[in-house]
Simulated assay, not measured.
Amino acid sequence: MSNETSEANGFWYWGVGAFIFAGSDTVTSVSGADYHTPDYVLDNGELVTIDLSPQRDSVWGDYARTLILENGTPLEDARQTSNPQWLEGVSAEHRLHTHFRKVAAPSMTFHELAREMNDHISTLGFENLDFRGNLGHSIENDMAHRVFLEAGNHRRLDSVEMVTFEPHIRRPGGTFGYKHENIYHFHNDHLYAL
């Protein structure tokens, strides 16, 4: 039996293991170069976004979620919240991922998919909060080689092996932001989450 573990031995995004925001700070979107862990004490009822960037040698992970605490306990599924405002946000994230899997095709460009998904964000009554305006990126061995899911990027989706979809959204002018990120890949022209 091997003693090797699958634990992360580094963090690929600016050396930051987790971006964590709570309450009204969940609308914050910053580069890893500018991130500082906030000094924040969680309440018994709280909305938290967490974005992880673990790395094991040259293999990346990327995962973000909106978590909800009710009565001091994290909900297993944030859609179980009794807060109607928070339910709208986390449900919109799930609808966005469903739409993403439905419309993405290998022959699409990053630009075409970004336009479609930004339009869908607006249709659901939300806005994109990402500080760069993108909705995800390719998974690479070097952070500088990422290909972004953004307007103006005319590379095809099938030019990369894997892509993240990580919309960071809020109601226009709203107090809370929501995130949900998966890594996707195509197999036989169908999109699958890792």
Rank of each mutant, 00 (worst) to 15 (best):
S2C: 15
N3R: 14
Y13A: 10
Y13N: 09
G15F: 06
V16G: 03
V16A: 04
V16D: 05
G17P: 15
A18Y: 13
F19G: 09
F19N: 12
I20G: 06
I20K: 15
G23V: 01
S24H: 06
D25I: 01
V27Q: 02
G32I: 13
G32W: 09
G32T: 09
A33I: 12
D34R: 08
H36P: 09
T37Q: 15
P38A: 11
P38N: 13
P38D: 11
P38T: 11
P38G: 12
D39R: 13
Y40M: 08
L42K: 06
L42G: 05
L42C: 10
G45Q: 10
E46D: 06
L47F: 09
T49G: 01
P54I: 14
R56L: 15
S58I: 14
S58G: 10
W60G: 11
Y63E: 07
T66K: 08
T66Q: 07
L69C: 08
E70P: 14
N71R: 00
P74K: 00
P74N: 00
A78H: 05
R79E: 09
Q80G: 08
N83T: 09
N83K: 00
Q85F: 12
L87V: 03
G89Y: 05
A92M: 13
E93I: 13
H94T: 13
L96D: 03
F100E: 02
F100C: 04
R101I: 13
V103R: 04
V103I: 15
A105S: 15
M108H: 13
T109P: 01
F110T: 00
F110W: 07
E112C: 03
L113W: 13
A114L: 01
M117P: 12
N118M: 11
D119A: 05
H120D: 11
T123W: 02
L124G: 05
L124T: 05
F126A: 01
F126R: 03
E127D: 07
L129F: 04
N134G: 04
G136Q: 00
H137T: 01
S138C: 02
I139Y: 04
E140C: 02
E140S: 06
A144R: 12
R146K: 09
L149K: 00
H154Q: 12
S159G: 05
V163D: 00
T164Q: 04
T164N: 10
E166N: 13
H168Y: 02
R170V: 02
R170C: 08
R171D: 01
G173T: 04
G173V: 02
G174L: 00
F176C: 06
F176H: 14
E181H: 15
N182C: 05
H187L: 04
H187E: 10
H187Q: 10
N188Q: 15
N188R: 12
H190W: 10
L191M: 07
